[in-house]
Design a protein around this nucleic acid. Sequence first.
RNA 1: GCCGCAAUGGUGAAAUGGUAGACACUAGGGACUUAAAAUCCCUUGACCGUAAUUGGUCGUACUGGUUCGAAUCCAGUUUGCGGCACCA
Length: 828
Amino acid sequence: MYDSSSTEKKWQAKWEEAKSYVIDLKKAKDPYFSHVMFPYPSGDKLHVGHWYNYGPADSFSRYQRMLGKDVFCPFGFDAFGLPAENYAIKTGVHPDDSITTNVETMIIQLKRIGCMYDWDKMVNTSKPEYYRWTQWLFLQMYKNKLAYRKDANVNWCESCKTVLANEQVWEGKCERCDTDIVLKPMTQWYWKVKDYAQKLLDGLENLDWPEKTKTMQRNWIGRSEGMNFTFKVKDSELEFEVYDSVPQTYRAQTFAVIAPEHPMLLSLIKGQKNEKEVLDFIERMKVKKATQKYNFDEDLEGVFTGRFVEFVTGDLPLWVASFAVMDYGSGIVNCSAHDERDFAFAKKYDIPLHVVMVPEDEAEAEKVRNLEYCFFKDPQGVMLEPEEFKGRRWGEVRQDIIKYLEKEGIGYPTVQYKLRDWSISRQRYWGAPIPIVYDPEGNPHPIPEEHLPWELPRDVDFKPTGVAPLAASKELLERTEAIFGKGWTPEVDTMDTFVCSSFYSFMYLSTEGYGTKFTNASPTASDREAQFIDPTIEKNWMPVDMYIGGPEHACMHLIYSRFVTMALKDFGYVSHEEPYKRLIHQGLITNGGAKMSKSKGNVVSPDAFVEQYGSDVFRMYLMFMGPFEGGGDWSDTGIKGIDRFVQKVWKLFGETEESEETKESKEVEVKLHQTIKKVTEDIERLHFNTCISALMELMNTVEKHKTFNKNLALTVAKLLSPLAPHLAEELWEKLGGPAYAKATGSKEGFVIDQPWPTYDEKMCVSATVEVAVQINGKLRGTITIDAAASEADVITLAKEVPNVLKNLEGKEIKKEIYVPGKLVSLVI
RNA sequence: GCCGCAAUGGUGAAAUGGUAGACACUAGGGACUUAAAAUCCCUUGACCGUAAUUGGUCGUACUGGUUCGAAUCCAGUUUGCGGCACCA
């Protein structure tokens, strides 16, 4: 009987004692960097989802290690963020205290999984040793003009007098007091991700990432090619650039719309007779846009500004419209009859439309001319205007019209991206303080590096008061004045937690235990001189060879990380521009079809299962559920099957004495080679489920043949090592693995340090194979043949099968197909 | 609305152009046992047939197509899941 509990404790202690998973980053010869997306250290226990992510990811890393690589698997905590702050508001426990406790308890739980984490290099983003570099990153962005300040709308609750994160807005209302949210402009810090849009797009080509994720990023970046036109405001000096992705139909433009939050709008409407009406509309939109539940038909609305813009097609009325987006193009849209939304808007407000393209069919063309429906983006559309292109097709005329417009000086080609600059300011306490101070005139100045870490003050009240929590800190203000002078004030916003996580892979490489040694002491001289990362280590270890985590980060975290890495390369601090070479998303484990969450009360704890069956069995059960990337619905039926398998392995190999050794039969030998092949190939593609079934088949064969053979058993221990590390070590030790390793010249010690077993392709084929015989594609029998039999012999044999003979009677064979070792197909 | 992915027994699933349902779970039957648990053996896609067997028909969401042969490739449809969503 295999006792998982004591065995697992034993090996975890041995691994730790031997520092088996601690990697010397400088000495490594064949670096393989593999880590999972680091978690938020919540106070809850590890749930099935954590295990489903970390267990298989560890199995993959262990396999890489047995291939002889220096595998580095660090772990860390994304420790800043709202939950700890909300907990502080509720209980008064300081986030630093609750997070420190949570990290400690989480590490204890994580160690029970038995992963090969190098805990010496753990990071915790909320510790000054870490966020000092978050702030350093901000300063680099600032110095290189990738950081700037801009007014932007934030979700504002008038009753709580506070800024709310998007997650705290529930159907347009404050989640705490149910007051309607309004958009309020506040000055915020932005990073220029948009400058890297094209690079982010191009870089995707060479990444070994799921196609789905790459597609999502491409859509998120949203590259669009088109033209810019210039609109001059009538009776004014103002001019606008206007982006058009469909310049073919430029002559159809009969009006233009401007976004309600456009900064030029107020000066435009000043003194116009509908000024009041427009102002009301703007106010209404502020509330409405905050509610974030738009309906295409109902919410299409606008007001005439009283202004006109001049264009080659004449003077176009300028409207303020709900659908105009400030952050795309210039915030002003040219509108025509050949856009569904423009068409609907014009119909609603009786704005004249002008048709310049019709369907080929004359009856349909007449309907379009009469504006019965909107005709748009049809490659077969026949152009009516401009005169030079009359009669040509919409689908082929584009490039020629673009050239023509450029020549005529009407517009010029441009590219637009949907990607927006990254707003990194948060009016929150529990985050890295933005390293900026303001002089008495209110101008921002970067805090010199020698003052980093610019520490998060502790003397704040967490209860929302209407200002950012840091604004209430006396210590922070005094510190600022002491260093910079009277009248100077600190920036009171903190950084988005996505900033902290955008460069943490580098921190694993550049630190020996950030977050574990913080003593509240002032930074030492060596701290100040420390470099972001050792260039040699960075060059050898980056990019991360295997990065595993949830698909929910496909766009945010994974775009920000790529952007930051590209920027750091441009600044000269790192040598790679992509952080993650290979990416895998584990699937989601649901319960009753729903995502596990505390509020639904359907979170499954692994504890009871691990207690009863052990970590290895639980890990393998999760892997056996299906392909890693598929996830699935939780059910505990079936974990018994894995437990039986583990017990069977132990019974056959762990409890058999050497004296009972038998000769390996040919069938077992072939099965072993087949299994090595299958397991190797399937670990590579993260199909752990079929690795396990292959091993089950092998054990069933061994059981059937009552074979006990030491070499076989040692090989099985190696094959099991990535999937069931504790069982494999126990087996290895029991079978005298270390002595065997010594005799064969490989490293003594753990099974994890043994070379991965190899197979012989020739040995994967048995002497005889079963071949199917089909007649017209229908199975009519099987024959067992010598694997080396010739095609002619096999076909002759196939025709002698009684059932085949019966079916062939009186029929003429037209065609004979032989697929070697698989089947014979006869066509009659 | 747009983009992407998926659909196979009672259940998780396997098979990526070549014997559909490997490997497990559940259920039923049997052995062992005073009994239970554990363990072992048998049956387990549906239907028909036979005294019996290596018998037959249907079957991978649906409708077609390509092919000697399709769960797999192609076209269309339905349903479900995920993401984006007024992007001019």
